Amino acid sequence: MFKALVMLMSLAATSTTAAQASRNEVDVKLVLAVDVSRSMDYEEMRIQREGYVEAIKHREFINAVRNGLTGRIAISYFEWAGFAMPESAIDWQVIETEQDAIDFANKLEERPLNFQRRTSISSAIAEGAAMIVSSPYRGSREVIDVSGDGTNNSGNPVAPARDKAVEAGIVINGLALMLRPSGAPGGLDKYYADCVIGGPGSFVLPVHKIEDFAIAVRRKLVLEISGLVPPATVHKVALGRPAVDCMVGERQWQDLFDR
């Protein structure tokens, strides 16, 4: 009798563990890393924030989540400039239903808009990778979604940070805000393609007009969640040696003090 009771308890515990493991399975672990450097004015910051909120609430986003293998993703968010800003972070949340997406978007919408100096894409990548590693969820894909409007000019060099994350199995995609000249040879999208993004199927979407931001974010999220191959109009990760000087931002910043 006692042995039978122990076996039943063991089976129940195993079943509970399996159920918990199943609940921790998601199609994608996605970190949204958003640039809030002072190169953007308040109006651009506001439209950027509204673009993310609108994209996460949109039907296309919800449908992309539902059409996955598990029908669930885990998503988190933080803002960065010269460093990653921990007070801006929204912790991991599973999105499975439309209400889940609305709840996450509402949390984002309530965040105050803050600016910071400098641009450290390397810090954003490092923070995103740390969040993915420490996440309680398991996803078949792990993605850092970096949006920014300038080249790396603070912290560690960006290419080694990118390479380290990619070696850990993380895909980095980019949204290049090309609202004004960035100083990157060939354009900021070219810099992102050669120096920032990486991993299988990685890509960068350029945004030339701030009013196009919401559509670009939604398009990017759908591609990331669905694991679709981006169209030819989207810059895919460059093969071989980068054609762009990945230290261009650091050199430009140094030149300001050498004159």
Rank of each mutant, 00 (worst) to 15 (best):
A124K: 00
K209G: 09
G51V: 02
S39Q: 01
L205T: 11
L256C: 09
G68A: 04
H58L: 05
F257S: 11
I215S: 10
N114R: 14
N153P: 12
M45H: 09
G186A: 01
L221S: 06
L30C: 06
L221V: 13
I47Y: 03
L11H: 06
R259I: 15
R219M: 04
I102R: 10
I95C: 07
I225E: 02
P231M: 08
R259F: 15
A4N: 13
V34K: 00
V31C: 00
F257W: 13
E50W: 06
R49I: 08
V94Q: 12
H58V: 04
N153S: 08
F203D: 03
V143Q: 02
A193V: 06
E79R: 03
A214Y: 10
G201Y: 07
G201W: 07
N153T: 07
W80P: 00
H235A: 14
V244Y: 02
G198M: 11
M178F: 05
G128Y: 05
T151Q: 07
N152Q: 10
A13D: 05
K190Y: 11
S182I: 02
E224V: 07
F61C: 11
L5K: 12
R118K: 15
D245W: 10
I102M: 11
S76Y: 10
V166P: 04
V196K: 01
A19V: 04
E224D: 07
A161I: 03
Q20H: 14
D258F: 15
A12H: 14
V53Q: 00
G201S: 14
A84L: 03
K57H: 11
N156R: 13
D41E: 07
S15T: 12
M131A: 10
A124P: 00
F104Y: 08
E127H: 08
N153M: 05
G51K: 01
G148W: 01
F203A: 08
A21F: 02
R117I: 12
L30V: 05
R72Q: 05
G240A: 06
A184R: 03
L175S: 04
L228C: 10
G183K: 04
G199P: 01
S76E: 11
S154M: 09
P185H: 00
Y77I: 01
Q99G: 08
D100L: 08
G169W: 07
Y77P: 00
H58I: 07
V28K: 00
D258K: 12
D35Q: 02
V65S: 06
L179C: 03
L30W: 01
A238D: 15
Y191C: 02
H235Q: 13
M178G: 08
I47H: 05
D100G: 07
T17R: 12
P206N: 04
L188C: 14
S37I: 04
F213L: 15
R49M: 11
D91Y: 13
P206D: 07
S88G: 03
G148T: 06
P185S: 01
L205S: 08
I75F: 03
A124C: 02
S140Q: 14
L8S: 13
P230W: 06
G51N: 05
G227L: 01
F61A: 14
K220N: 13
E211S: 04
A19T: 10
S10M: 15
S182N: 00
D145A: 09
R46C: 12
L11Q: 11
G201I: 09
S122F: 00
V237G: 10
